[in-house]
Amino acid sequence: MALYRFLCALAGLCCCVGVYADTVTDSFAVTATVTSGCVLGSSGAVNGVDFGTINFGSMVDIPNHVDIASSSGAGSVIVTCTPGTSISLALDYGLHNGSSSARYVSNGTTSLAYQLYRDSSHSQVWGTVADGLAYNIASFPSATQTYTVYARLFATATMPATGTYTDTVTVTLTY
């Protein structure tokens, strides 16, 4: 009898309907939004980057204009932006009451006139948005750009006082 019960129990297990698990699926969205953006300096640079110094050199007198072109780390402006971004790149007129006619380097008591240009022929003063002399780019390219600043120290008929003459020009990038 015990064998009979065992066989019936075994038969019952064999005849049991299998247990099935149910599967449920759903989905979620993944997005990324790229907005227009720019930095002064190379990609990943932080604002406040130092572009270096445009240096006219040492001289005893200035009978003729002194023209120089900036280079990377020595006055050139480096910009990185999202491709296609419209930008305006402006240079103010410095610390010594400069204008679109002339900027000034000063040794504290004496000033010498100079100007900054966007072109090597010194015909396009690089100025501010307010005076319409900023450099405007309708669609920024896909790579970091280095913009050369062409500088001219104006000739003077008189011997300048000795000393180191300096100015600070602020670069403003608007996008």
Rank of each mutant, 00 (worst) to 15 (best):
91 L>H: 02
138 A>P: 02
91 L>Y: 01
151 A>I: 13
53 T>K: 09
97 N>E: 10
60 V>C: 13
37 G>Y: 11
97 N>A: 13
47 N>H: 04
97 N>C: 13
102 A>L: 10
133 L>S: 06
72 S>G: 05
38 C>G: 05
144 T>L: 02
75 G>V: 04
108 G>D: 01
45 A>N: 07
59 M>S: 10
111 S>Y: 07
128 T>V: 08
90 A>R: 02
13 L>W: 06
66 V>K: 04
108 G>A: 03
173 L>V: 02
13 L>P: 04
1 M>P: 15
148 T>N: 01
130 A>H: 05
104 Y>S: 10
96 H>P: 03
103 R>S: 03
147 Y>M: 09
86 S>E: 12
31 T>P: 00
35 T>E: 10
125 V>D: 08
134 A>Q: 11
64 N>E: 15
59 M>I: 01
39 V>D: 00
75 G>T: 08
18 G>T: 10
171 V>P: 06
104 Y>P: 07
117 Y>L: 01
86 S>R: 14
50 D>I: 00
23 T>H: 13
134 A>T: 05
155 A>V: 07
145 Q>W: 00
155 A>Q: 09
14 C>K: 03
130 A>S: 13
153 L>W: 08
31 T>S: 13
52 G>Q: 09
66 V>E: 01
92 D>C: 10
62 I>S: 01
95 L>Q: 15
19 V>I: 12
116 L>F: 07
134 A>R: 05
84 G>C: 12
58 S>I: 09
175 Y>H: 07
34 V>M: 05
4 Y>S: 11
101 S>V: 10
117 Y>R: 03
45 A>T: 07
158 T>L: 15
170 T>G: 10
92 D>W: 12
119 D>T: 06
94 G>I: 04
70 S>K: 05
135 Y>K: 14
54 I>R: 00
8 C>E: 11
66 V>D: 00
135 Y>M: 12
71 S>L: 05
157 A>W: 01
168 T>M: 12
18 G>N: 07
42 S>R: 15
